[in-house]
Design a protein around this nucleic acid. Sequence first.
DNA 1: ATTTTACTGACACGGCGTATCGCAACAGTA
DNA 2: TACTGTTGCGATACGCCGTGTCAGTAAAAT
Lengths: 230, 230
Amino acid sequence: MTVWDRPEPPTRPAPLDRERIVAAAIALADEGGLEAVSLRKVAARLDAGPMRLYGYISTKEELFDLMVDEVHAEILPEEQPGDWREVLRVLAHRTRQAALRHEWLADLLGGRPSLGPNGLAVTEAKLAALDGLADIDTVMRAVETVSAYFTGAIRREIANLRAERATGLSKRDWQRASGPHVRRMLATDRFPALAKAVHDGTEVDAEVSFATGLDWVLDAVAAKLARPPA
Amino acid sequence: MTVWDRPEPPTRPAPLDRERIVAAAIALADEGGLEAVSLRKVAARLDAGPMRLYGYISTKEELFDLMVDEVHAEILPEEQPGDWREVLRVLAHRTRQAALRHEWLADLLGGRPSLGPNGLAVTEAKLAALDGLADIDTVMRAVETVSAYFTGAIRREIANLRAERATGLSKRDWQRASGPHVRRMLATDRFPALAKAVHDGTEVDAEVSFATGLDWVLDAVAAKLARPPA
DNA sequence: ATTTTACTGACACGGCGTATCGCAACAGTA
DNA sequence: TACTGTTGCGATACGCCGTGTCAGTAAAAT
């Protein structure tokens, strides 16, 4: 039996692993948002049928969890510099930057506990930075408070960014309430303080605003660390 | 032609309005979470075909916006008592309570700007509370910072609550890392600070934890109000 | 060489959001 | 009272979704 008689060995399907699946999903999400991620499309990117994925994940939600954990790897800096304040500040900013790179992260942030290896590593870094500076409960409260702040701030920032993009209004115009609906509402003078804020408020860079609020919260933490609880 | 010959007049479909639609959607979401809300099911509750809703909303997202605005009506207290701090604290707690009543709110909070009448009214209340206590930009920063904190904190609280419910673990057990995966991770001693926190941390009531972090942030705001920015 | 195991992928199911469009009920006119 | 214009309802349909089922097959174990 010569070579010519023998068929080629059947091409085994390209091997799959979670890494490749997650990478494909992230690529899709980066391009078209979370809603562009479907198991069918992820599988198609990997030349596989949708059902193939169920060997690696058992639910679409799990895929999202893996995606978030993957981004947490980007968030964790190689080496931690400086004092606790610097560590928390850097982690907050890196999370924000990750969300600007991967806007879909804003949809997932805080939506489920991050128990993946990278998520845990980030939490570890936060706790380690404060370790020994106060009793454990205060430390945990501090980490949770800072995290809650930047989670919420990032979500709002991305939400506003999308709204601006969708309406085609610049941030300045939006703040000036150029949207017809908001303008009409403000004209009713049922919202005097809001109207004043929109009218007189300075345009602020999103990053500056984020950093300022973060500093306030860090100040608050510093105050509690200095004077441990009664 | 007697009555008996004439058919009854065709029953005109029960009139619809946004209020009834939103109420039906909220009921569905309260029962089965956001994912239980489909235009088809909302319409079915109102004895209507799905397409009927498109006269009142043009997209499912708009329905979500209306739902959020409706809950904002619950959040706004009838009368505002006390000083700015009290106002912000009450609004934060009422938002949290609304999210405990309507857990799906956690999925939507901060996801889009709240420009409905009730959402604007809540923002107005926050701004009005601080009006005149500092320059406008500081006031806005304060409102945003507090809002970011409690948005993030509420999301985390609901996320944890769901995780506990899903795993059947009590909060205490979960904090003790009884989940096999987390326990295994902690055993690797790659997360010493986290392990210590889990092991030595006191169990804290969610509301207390929320209130504590909130007070810290309010302290930070108070400090900035006292000493206006350079 | 044979049996067992594990995995793939085709198919199917039920549900989804929403575009299209014929039709029926009302409002206005003569 | 007949007619006409307008409105808006709902049946149908399209394409997509997540995922259960299951027959087939290739690898591994015997």
